Amino acid sequence: MSHTARTQGPSEHMGRRTVVTGGAGFVGSHLCRALLAAGDSVVCLDNLSTGRLRNIGDLLDRPRFTFLNADVVEPFAISGRVDLVLHLACPASPVDYFRMPVATLRAGGHGTYNALSLARDKGARFVVTSTSEVYGDPLVHPQREDYWGNVNPVGPRACYDESKRFSEALTVAFRDEYGVDTGIARLFNSYGPDMRGGDGRVVPTFIKQALAGKPLTVMGDGSQTRSLCYVTDTVRAILALAGSYETSPVNIGNPHEITMRELAEYIITLTGSASPVRYVEAHPDDPQRRRPDIGRARRVLDWEPEVRLFDGLKETIASFTPAGDLSAV
């Protein structure tokens, strides 16, 4: 157990009451399910602008689960005890934040302020899910938490990058000024079942193209890299951070690095597709290399990813096939 792990108090013994903003989103819905399995009562708050009710459809009738259709950027109230606030509400895919840049910035600003205010009022632990995008197009590799990043504040990705950078700054300010118990999780390219096929992120895009027999569209020459972390590993890390006293940002990701060209070829092989690879013009400010240094997560959370890329991609591909059966591919 990490030296920063919390000892169990009365509320944990009875089962925490946890608020998850953005709980109907991809990572959020997996997180809600894991919290319920751990014995928590969960209040899921989502305005469904990018989340989907189908992601939490199996949870709606659970006695310890409450869904609030609400926008985190507007003031909201949660009655009763709250032990933990997990703030995930923010458009996270390029398709969404290019379409909703102001809403994205408001989620990082007003939304984070409202979620932090809830934690402050309730005396709850607060964890915000930030992103590897705070590093921008990094000039150091791999990326450690003490790297300040190389971000274009007025570029096309700025609405997302700066939203998350501001949410981190606001989180630290609430900790320093008001004594709120806070944590910051920097997620690196999570993937898995329940991703939207058209959300613009690389894994669902490639899978959907391969299953349809269409060309897999690789940006630039495909040499840019990403580090892909299966969603169950991401969720385990967020819960470990929530259960710790760690206040510094923590990278949560898989240090296995893969080029986009290799990923495309891998998915073509796993799906048995005859799709070709087609190279298209890269988006401006597209990061060229992305790999987390997870030394801090290993030390303070006793965490590292367990799911191999092969196994994670098989599960993800299966979720895109009829009845979720990979044998149908």
Rank of each mutant, 00 (worst) to 15 (best):
F98H: 11
N69E: 14
D137Y: 05
Q143M: 15
L60P: 08
T129Y: 00
R106T: 01
I78F: 01
V82W: 02
N114Y: 01
S79R: 13
V82Q: 00
S117E: 13
Y147W: 03
R54G: 13
V85I: 05
V95W: 02
V20M: 12
L53T: 14
R144N: 14
V42C: 08
D83H: 01
T66C: 11
P75Y: 07
V128T: 12
G57Q: 14
A107V: 08
A37F: 13
V82F: 04
T21E: 10
L118D: 00
A107E: 00
G111S: 02
L59V: 04
R62F: 13
R33G: 10
I56S: 02
Y147M: 00
P63N: 09
L60V: 15
T18Y: 00
L36K: 06
V127K: 01
S49N: 15
D40S: 14
V140L: 08
P63R: 13
D96K: 09
L105E: 12
V102R: 15
V134I: 12
V95I: 14
G57I: 11
P101F: 02
A34D: 15
T18V: 15
T131L: 05
P101G: 10
V72K: 04
P101I: 15
A38H: 10
T129R: 06
G39A: 10
A92S: 15
G51K: 10
D71I: 06
L60C: 12
V27I: 12
R106E: 04
V43W: 00
E74L: 13
R81P: 07
R64E: 05
R64P: 00
H87V: 11
D96S: 10
G25N: 05
T50I: 06
S49I: 14
H141C: 03
G39H: 03
E74T: 13
S93W: 10
L68R: 04
T129F: 09
L45N: 02
R125A: 03
F76G: 05
N69A: 09
H87M: 03
D83L: 00
L68Y: 07
V95A: 06
L88C: 00
S29N: 08
L48A: 08
V95T: 11
F67D: 02
V128Y: 05
L116I: 00
V134L: 09
D146Q: 03
W148F: 07
L31F: 10
R62V: 14
A119S: 10
N69P: 06
L36W: 11
P91F: 06
L84T: 04
A92I: 10
Y135V: 13
L105I: 06
C90R: 05
F26G: 02
L139M: 10
D83G: 01
V102D: 09
L53C: 14
T50L: 04
M100W: 06
V140S: 10
I78A: 01
P138Q: 04
L48I: 12
D83V: 03
